[in-house]
Design a binder for these strands. Structure first.
Lengths: 345, 345
DNA sequence: TAATTCTTTGCAATCGATTGCAATTTAAAA
DNA sequence: TTTTAAATTGCAATCGATTGCAAAGAATTA
């Protein structure tokens, strides 16, 4: 099969007429090995094009120097940015990433978790799928003694490390901003309420209304509008109400905000003067639509780095002293044209 | 460290008073094991919450069921889509992905390659970094007997499997399209010419001009303009020429096309009537700028799937019968408003 | 010169699963 | 009842690297 067997420490040992253990120690610059033999071993290793077998090494050492990452979709801006952040920070420490996508499916998520446990990863980083259900599979990660870090979409009942955005607070800020811009009837496009992050976005919306003594109007709340198409659909319904909204907080995503914008423009409704729009995520395109879309930046790359750093920091501790811990990253409201009807630059 | 030692086949064997080898065979539903013991082993495994140690298994079997992927940046639309495609196809076959990013740096790319070789991955999939240099590190992948698949940005001198777009042809088509729309002075924003794909895009541009008997004008060719900022900069220079272009093919990326668009709009130049723009990659935003941007779709997810399928197909063959092979995926020209000054919908 | 300490090296077990081959048990055939 | 074949199971080596412990050699001290 393989063309030639790969060189092992035994090959080096044989060639130099020393023991494999000495070769191992020499290669790890480890123990108190004679400088001369150390040099010899390294030279021979280079000559024979030796590469360690990480599998063997990890098996023996009982670690894998690998972090498993499970996200709903790899090719979603937010997630790919988080992954990029994790990768950058872990690579520096000599850790590799195994990436899986759950496709928002519980069943596949369970499969991924099992694969990663079998791979003996040192840590599993996960943003749970939207499908919901119980979290026995995540519990079993913990039981296996593998560090579990949840981010963004977290199962809050599980006592693990968590890295999340301060979602409620920023949502409140976004809606307050719209109120301050003079919008009176603000609608909400909400996401699946079994995911905490969407619940919190709604909560922020409600709190902002309450704080400004504005009524909550159920007909202005549209469920499950988290794609561009669903956002557009919901918007049509909203704008055809007897009393249509004068602003829409697309709390699910910028894509749904885009749907809102397109429908509004198609119906000849002026943004932001007649309709304010705020999205979520700061996708690249929000900056360049016309008008540009107000949105929320989640600092996704930083989030990735934070996750990796958290893992390395907690790594030393043994299981008994592991405590659940939540790191909040403050997102930032990016005010653009789509909600800006007062301040002219 | 770990709270409790994980169950191994020996634990199961001991509990049932049989040999570990029998347990192994039973778990693999493999050999001719007695149905009764098979059931017993499975039951006990479940009861003890047994999970195989893939490290050990792989070490013994000399394979890793893992594919290593190296891309310049994980969080670039094109790459994250390719990765998503690879992941989807390989997961079905029980293969995992280890992802690395080279950050466009040769040095890091070499590191990644070594890590993946050490990990004993069964295949390395790579899109080379822009930095260039020799490809000794890729040669050493081949020498290690690891399947090497290059995609998109390939080192053509290396005899490996390759999955690429039909870049030259589609570039020619894009430029021809602009010519047919009546543009007379078409400029080119080109990428680093040490990467083949950018060379081919230029080649397609040149061929289209030649085919339509149009002169090649060196002052209309801008080097190394592959970010939005560089694209914008180059555009300013172009539009301030005594004889400015009436169309720009931003062959490097949609981002640079976006730079072009912004500069044009800022200068009060009408798109597409006074200036045609064509980008490359079909980023999500090209659809929603105004005017929307003509671009080229590379079918990135399909490309990922194709890569994985190619690997699985070639996997069976032994090293000696491995032949270099190139699969071309035909990209598609997506004509939008930014070049459409004739046909009105 | 003998006793003691410090360096350096080797032996052998270990990590957990797999597998060729031999051994044992059971069933079928003679 | 004996012989032969088939079905199961176990033994022990193996994958490649690491590491505790003992041994050998070199250097230092009494």
């Amino acid at each position: 099969m393989k063309p030639k067997k790969r060189t092992t420490i035994y090959d080096i040992a044989e060639k130099l007429n020393i023991a494999a253990s000495s070769v191992s120690r020499a290669l790890n610059n480890n123990s108190i090995i004679n400088e001369e033999t150390r040099r010899l071993v390294h030279a021979t290793a280079a000559e024979l094009n030796y590469k360690v077998n990480t599998l063997a090494s990890n098996l023996r050492k009982g670690e894998s120097k690998t972090i498993g990452v499970i996200v709903p979709r790899i090719n979603q801006n937010f997630f790919s940015n988080v992954i990029a952040g994790i990768e950058e920070a872990s690579y520096k420490k000599g850790y590799n990433l195994i990436i899986c996508q759950s496709n928002e499916l519980r069943e596949k998520e369970i499969q991924c978790v099992n694969t990663l446990i079998n791979q003996h990863v040192d840590c599993i980083v996960i943003s749970v799928s939207a499908e919901g259900g119980d979290y026995a599979h995540l519990q079993s990660v913990i039981d296996s003694g593998i560090q579990l870090i949840q981010f963004d979409r977290v199962a809050k009942e599980l006592e693990t490390l968590k890295v999340i955005n301060d979602t409620e607070q920023i949502s409140m800020k976004a809606v307050s901003h719209m109120i301050e811009q003079g919008y009176k009837r603000i609608a909400l496009l909400e996401g699946p309420q079994n995911l905490d992050i969407f619940k919190q976005r709604k909560e922020g919306y409600l709190k902002a209304l309450k704080k400004h003594h504005m009524p909550v109007n159920d007909e202005l709340i549209v469920e499950n509008a988290w794609t561009k198409e669903l956002g557009a659909e919901g918007t049509k319904r909203l704008l055809n109400l007897p009393q249509p909204p004068d602003a829409i907080f697309a709390s699910t995503s910028d894509f749904s905000a885009l749907g809102v914008l397109e429908v509004a423009l198609a119906m000849g409704i002026k943004v932001p003067s007649e309709l304010g729009i705020c999205g979520y995520s700061n996708e690249a395109f929000t900056e360049i639509t016309s008008p540009s879309i107000t949105t929320i930046d989640q600092f996704s790359i930083d989030m990735g780095k934070t996750i990796a750093e958290l893992f390395f920091k907690e790594m030393g501790k043994d299981a008994s002293s592991r405590k659940p811990k939540t790191i909040r990253i403050k997102p930032s409201l990016i005010i653009r044209a789509s909600t800006n009807r007062k301040d002219k630059k």
